[in-house]
Simulated assay, not measured.
Amino acid sequence: METIIKKITHTEEDKKIYEQAGQILRAGGLVAFPTETVYGLGADALDAKASAKIYAAKGRPSDNPLIVHIADVNALYDLASEVPEKALVLAEKFWPGPLTMILKKQDKVPDSITGGLGTVAIRMPSHPVAAEL
């Protein structure tokens, strides 16, 4: 596996970096990126093989759920089987930002992401790099 290191400079040149990162994610690869609280190791959340790579790279127990990052509140409906009104109120007040919501998952969310639980952890980061990615 090849490691590629790129620096985001908040210029037009960044577009190529984001495109390359997107290609890596779509191909089942991993991308490290900053959020407002930590640097994350990301993969396609709906690709069980890609999420397995996160667990392997971090030495993380497979029963420890991952957080799914989203870019739009509407993605809640793609990932959660139920979106309570309270969740939408919280999203409007605190997203984007470091709030993670735990909601009942849609069937399409792999158990490998949720640690086998019936819930999924969802967050919309505010860091500009995470948001763009």
Rank of each mutant, 00 (worst) to 15 (best):
V31R: 09
D107I: 04
I70W: 11
E92K: 15
V38T: 05
Q23G: 13
H69Q: 03
A131W: 02
K86V: 10
T37N: 03
G97V: 12
V68I: 05
G29N: 09
N64I: 03
L103A: 10
G22M: 00
T9I: 13
H127E: 13
R123P: 01
P61N: 10
K86M: 11
I122R: 02
Y39R: 14
K15C: 08
L66N: 09
G28M: 08
G28W: 02
K86E: 15
T37K: 03
L90P: 12
Y77I: 05
G29V: 00
E132L: 03
L76Y: 00
I70F: 08
V83A: 13
Y18R: 01
L90A: 05
I122K: 02
I70S: 07
G115P: 02
A80R: 08
K53A: 03
L133G: 08
K15Q: 14
I8L: 10
G59F: 06
E13S: 15
A48R: 11
Y55E: 06
T37Y: 01
L66P: 00
E82K: 12
I54W: 08
K58M: 10
L30E: 05
A21E: 05
L66T: 01
R60Y: 00
E2S: 15
R60I: 07
P96S: 08
K53D: 04
Y18H: 02
A43T: 06
S126Y: 01
T35W: 06
Y77M: 10
V31I: 07
L133Q: 12
L79D: 11
T9F: 05
I67D: 10
E92M: 05
I67N: 07
P65H: 12
K104E: 11
